[in-house]
Amino acid sequence: MVGDFLNVLAIIVNLVGASYKRVDALRTSYQANILEKLNTGELTGGSGQFQEMSLARLGDTRWGSHLLTITRFINMFSAIIDVLENISKDGIHSDKKSSALREMNNMQDFEFAFNLHFIFEILAITDDFSQALQKKDQDIQNAMKLSNLCKCALQNLRENGWDTLFSRVIEFCVDRHILVPNIEDIVLVKGRPRRVAQQLNDRFSGTTTKLFTCISCLSARDSFATFDKDKLLRLARFYPLDFNSEEHLLLRPQLDKFLLLVKMDETFFNLNSISCVAQKLIETRSSCHFSLVYRLLTLALILPVATSDLRNKMGDDWLNDNLVV
Results as ranks from 00 to 15, higher is better:
58 L>V: 13
139 D>F: 01
28 T>W: 04
319 L>I: 11
101 L>Q: 01
269 F>E: 02
205 S>H: 07
42 E>V: 00
99 S>A: 12
120 F>G: 00
22 R>D: 12
170 I>D: 02
158 R>C: 14
189 V>L: 05
5 F>I: 06
315 G>K: 04
249 L>I: 15
96 K>L: 15
72 R>V: 06
171 E>V: 01
88 S>C: 14
25 A>S: 13
126 T>F: 01
78 S>E: 14
153 A>V: 08
298 T>G: 03
26 L>E: 02
214 C>V: 02
297 L>Q: 12
225 A>D: 08
63 W>I: 11
55 L>A: 01
49 Q>S: 06
123 L>T: 15
162 W>G: 07
116 L>M: 10
87 I>C: 02
102 R>E: 08
20 Y>R: 06
1 M>C: 13
15 L>E: 12
57 R>I: 10
320 N>T: 11
289 H>V: 14
281 L>Y: 08
245 S>C: 08
235 L>H: 03
148 N>T: 07
317 D>T: 04
294 Y>A: 01
233 L>R: 13
223 S>Q: 13
35 L>D: 06
161 G>W: 05
10 A>K: 15
135 K>W: 01
281 L>H: 11
306 A>Y: 00
20 Y>T: 05
267 T>G: 08
225 A>Y: 07
170 I>S: 02
96 K>R: 12
239 Y>H: 11
295 R>K: 15
94 S>W: 14
287 S>W: 11
195 R>G: 01
237 R>E: 15
290 F>A: 04
106 N>A: 13
80 I>T: 08
280 K>S: 07
32 A>G: 03
253 P>Y: 10
85 E>A: 11
160 N>C: 14
158 R>Q: 15
216 S>L: 05
159 E>Y: 04
32 A>D: 07
178 I>G: 05
121 E>S: 06
18 A>Q: 03
230 D>N: 14
176 R>H: 00
287 S>H: 15
86 N>T: 07
276 C>D: 02
